[in-house]
Every structure is written in C-alpha cells, then in structure tokens.
C-alpha cells in the first residue's frame, strides 16, 4: 500500500485544500485522542489519591480508636485493698507520733538510690514505735520505657499487696528496686514480675492480676492525685505532712527529730 500510494499512478491529484482538510481532521483526531488519554490519566490519578487518602484516614483512625478503647475499658478504677486514705502502704505503729511518707516510682533511679542509702534507717523506723513509714508509690515514668514499665511494676506490687499483704508487698518493693531495669529500655517482662511476686510470697492468682493490669487505672489515678499536691518528682519525702528539701539520711533524721520522735 505504501508503495502504491507513493507512486499514485492513475489517481487524479488530490486538491491542496482537500489534503489540508484531511490533515486537519487527522490532527484534530489526534488531539482529541491525546486529550482523552490525559483525562483518563488524570482520572486514574485522582481515584488513586482518593483511595489512598480514604485508606490512610480509615486505617489510622480505626487503629487509634481500637487502641484507646483497649486502654480505658475499666470505667471505675479498682483500688487495691489495705491502703491508707491517700493511697499509701503503711508500716509501723498505728499511734506513732511521726509519720514519714515516701513518694516513689519503681522506674526512678533516684528512688533506687534513696532506698539503698536509707534502708537501715527506714527499717529501724518501721520496727520502732516512734515513726511510721508510708510508701506512696506512683507511676509517672512510663515514657522512660517502651512498655510502660512504671505502671506495670506498680500494678504488680499492688497485686502482691492484694494477694499476700503488706509484708509481701515490702519484699516485692525491695526486689523491684534491686532488679530495677535501666531507663530507655523495655523494662522487666511480665513473666519476670510474676516470678518476683511469687518469690515475695504471693500465690498463683497474682499472675492473672499482673497480666490483666488490674490496678493500671488506679495507678494513673493515684499518680494524678499525687501530682496535684506538692509532689513534682520522685523521691519526695514528707515528715508529718511537711515536704523535705533533701532525701539524704541526715535530712530525714533531722526532720524526724524535729517532728518529735524520741
């Protein structure tokens, strides 16, 4: 065909205007085609952008809703048994003239140092009849671990308190500080907390309590309550309700003596 049309032996010459018109038609058709394709492409892009946006919003929103519901399913926080009115575990004589209260977080390295430095002093207070010792634990350092360790540790200690009482809680408290995980890590896993709780004297029921985070909501409530007062960090020590400037042994002894312990 192309050879023939090149030679065009017997056809009359196509008039110039007719040729021009056919070229115009062709050009117009080509343009139309191109427009059509551009429209198609634009539509495809628009559809994909729309699908993409809807998918992003839907997936992220669903995830956030599901996760936040998982957090706040317990409407009323269960309070651990055996605490004082302001949420402390109290040791020592009921009628002791002086009350020392320590606000601590199980993830806080300074609290660990406080415990190590004052273990003898606090033990002697607990065993004497002059100074009652109250531990008021909070959990505000969840952001220092990847697993919310602060709250998990506090919950675990309260599970021990519920299951085995104050002395077991004290043992748990001590081993939580002895085995305190460093900040910036994943904390101790739940099964290790269960093991420590059982070593401290708790029974088998403690496992469910730790796994379920039974006192997580209470821990959040307690932490908020404590921070609404004079506490802005841990450890913080109160002697008969007065906040101490320092938490070293000398400061504590001085404050306790001034408060009237014999």
């Amino acid at each position: 065909m192309s050879k023939q049309s090149k030679k065009k032996p017997n056809l009359p010459p196509v008039p110039a205007e007719q040729r021009a018109a056919s070229a115009d038609r062709r050009a117009a058709a080509a343009q139309l085609m191109q427009q059509q394709r551009r429209r198609d492409r634009r539509r495809t892009v628009l559809i994909q952008v729309a699908v993409g946006l809807v998918a992003v919003v839907a997936v992220v929103a669903t995830t956030l809703v599901v996760l936040s519901q998982r957090d706040g399913d317990g409407a009323v926080a269960t309070t651990p048994p055996g605490l004082t009115e302001d949420g402390a575990v109290r040791f020592g004589a009921a009628d002791a003239p002086v009350t020392l209260q320590a606000v601590e977080d199980f993830q806080c390295p300074a609290c660990r140092q406080f415990e190590q430095a004052n273990v003898d002093l606090l033990t002697s207070y607990r065993e004497g009849d002059q100074v009652a010792v109250e531990y008021r634990p909070i959990a505000f350092l969840d952001r220092m671990s990847t697993t919310g360790y602060s709250t998990r540790a506090l919950n675990a200690s309260m599970c021990v308190l519920e299951d085995a009482g104050k002395d077991a809680w004290l043992a748990m408290h001590q081993s939580l500080y002895e085995q305190q995980p460093p900040e910036g890590g994943a904390g101790l896993p739940d099964d290790q907390l269960v093991g420590m709780a059982e070593d401290a004297g708790a029974g088998g029921a403690v496992e469910g309590c730790i796994d379920d985070g039974r006192y997580d909501d209470w821990a959040a409530q307690q932490t908020a309550d404590v921070f609404s007062g004079e506490v802005s960090g841990t450890p913080t020590v109160f002697v008969n309700g007065t906040k101490l400037g320092g938490t070293d042994t000398a400061s504590i002894q001085k404050a306790v003596a001034e408060a009237g312990a014999k």
């Binding site: 997936v59 992220v60 995830t63 956030l64 996760l67 936040s68 998982r70 957090d71 969840d142 952001r143 671990s145 990847t146 697993t147 919310g148």
Partner: peptide, 14 residues
Amino acid sequence: LVLILVRFWDYWST
C-alpha cells in the same frame, strides 16, 4: 505504621 502504633501504644498513649 499500624504495627508500630500497636506495638508501642503503651508508650505513645502516655
């Protein structure tokens, strides 16, 4: 993204 959100939710939510 969803896996990250779920995995570290304890951390993000605090």
